[in-house]
């Protein structure tokens, strides 16, 4: 039986781990290579690096982090943030990333998703959707949550699936950093709309939120940052908790 995945996410800036509260106020929580190794030894099903300021700053630090991590961690490594082109994707994959997560470029230029999934296979193309509720619908935001594209998130999810995305990483902007739980309604609606796996993100404050993301939100995988890297919970604790709730996990 296919297991639900738990994915710790490390927000990386200038080669160091940080986690934003609603994408601002950054705290330093250590070395990404060591953190990733702790996570993979602790049973993380994948590791995700998000290079949060990559759109604006020098990207070379992330390549170095990916290179070092991929020599130590033998679980899948996803890298996102600031990816603009097929060449950027090529570089990250060559450094040892297994998947890339594309956000802004996928909205501005859907051809990047089309071309890269053709070139490298959909299995390594994750499209990240940052969505914020506006009335009855959700709108897609780009540039690390700064710009509203006005695009309907559900329609976008379907369209990007057709363009060749292998997975969707769905983040609720309203919930990110709040620790009050995933936007279950959003997760459920997108997951029901597409036939590719959905990774739920944004808002995890406790282990029950992870359970809800899978059972109510129908996500295939749950991503969380702060509950893991400030030592509030270990990945193993999270897995044991999910297991106790009858959710299939790799233990």
């Amino acid at each position: 039986m296919l297991k639900n995945r738990i994915i710790p996410c490390l927000d990386v800036k200038n080669g160091r781990v940080v986690k934003g509260i609603n994408f601002v106020e950054l705290k330093d929580a250590g070395d990404p290579v060591e953190q990733a190794k702790i996570y993979s030894d602790g049973g993380a099903d994948e590791i995700c690096f998000l290079d949060i300021t990559a759109s604006n700053e020098n990207r070379d630090t992330i390549y170095d982090v990916v290179k070092k991590t991929s020599k130590k961690c033998f679980v899948p490594l996803t890298v996102g943030g600031g990816i603009r082109s097929v060449e950027d994707i090529n570089k990250l994959l060559n450094c040892g990333a297994d998947k890339v997560s594309i956000n802004t470029a996928a909205v501005e230029n859907p051809k990047v998703v089309l071309d890269s999934s053709k070139k490298f296979g959909s299995q390594c193309i994750v499209v990240a959707i940052d969505a914020k509720k506006n009335g009855e619908k959700w709108e897609v935001f780009t540039h690390g949550g700064r710009n509203n594209s006005g695009i309907d998130a559900l329609e976008y999810a379907k369209q990007i699936e057709e363009n060749g995305a292998g997975e969707l990483l769905v983040t609720s902007m309203d919930r990110d950093g709040t620790q009050v739980g995933y936007d279950i309604d959003l997760m459920y609606k997108i997951s029901s709309k597409v036939n590719i796996p959905v990774i739920a993100s944004g808002g995890v404050g406790n282990l029950d939120h992870l359970v809800d993301g899978i059972t109510k939100g129908k996500a295939s995988a749950v991503l969380a940052a702060s509950i893991f890297h400030y030592g509030k919970h270990s990945v193993r604790e999270a897995k044991e908790y999910l297991d106790s709730k009858g959710i299939p996990v790799r233990i």
Binding site: K3, R5, D45, P197
Partner: peptide, 11 residues
């Protein structure tokens, strides 16, 4: 549509 594709993850 009962099973999502790709089959991604740990089995």
């Amino acid at each position: 549509g009962k099973y999502k594709l790709p089959h991604i993850g740990w089995n």
